[in-house]
């Protein structure tokens, strides 16, 4: 594979913050993104905000996808968003999914999480969103 093609692959970190063990969705989405041609790194469970920020930095990802089902998102997501900003990773597209009440969605979006995928979301819609958002970003930077 040429370096050029490698660079064009979208790199995604699928991360599980908090203590909950519900990884069915994260694993399904990791595989769907991979089958859509993206490079996916899955963190595994029980990742602290600090660990996720560090992994995003080390893995040089374009996208961070957060999956959480315990309800701890309003406490943990801001720590991750701020952590990424503090490391200067403002270019990273942040998306999230899980059991996230409708009323939290606008708050999270304002915080800088670009899309929230709630129960019943289709993996194809997630793939399409990430592709479109990355295409937009790449156009802007070239």
């Amino acid at each position: 594979m040429s370096n050029k093609v490698k660079q064009e692959k979208i790199r995604v970190l699928v991360a599980k913050p908090g203590l909950d063990g519900h990884d069915r969705g994260a694993k399904v989405i990791a595989r769907a993104l991979r089958e859509a041609g993206m490079e996916v790194i899955y963190t595994g469970l029980r990742q602290s905000p600090e660990m996720i920020v560090e992994a995003a930095l080390q893995e040089d990802v374009d996208v961070v996808g957060l999956s959480i089902l315990s309800g701890a998102h309003m406490e943990l997501f801001p720590l991750i968003v701020d952590g990424l900003k503090q490391k200067g990773l403002n270019h990273i597209l942040i998306v999230a999914g899980g059991i996230i009440p409708e009323e939290d969605v606008p708050v999270l979006k304002k915080m800088g999480i670009q899309a929230i995928f709630r129960p019943g979301a289709m993996t194809q819609d997630i793939v399409d969103f990430v592709n479109a958002a990355m295409a937009g970003k790449r156009q802007r930077t070239t």
């Binding site: 203590l19 029980r46 602290s48 315990s70 309800g71 701890a72 720590l79």
Partner: peptide, 23 residues
């Protein structure tokens, strides 16, 4: 039980941030 309890942390442990009473 909530997740802090399920994985053996007191509620004020750093690992348990945000989990109190949720699940």
């Amino acid at each position: 039980f909530d997740y802090a309890t399920l994985v053996g942390y007191d509620t004020d442990a750093k690992e348990a941030r945000g989990e109190f009473g949720k699940c």
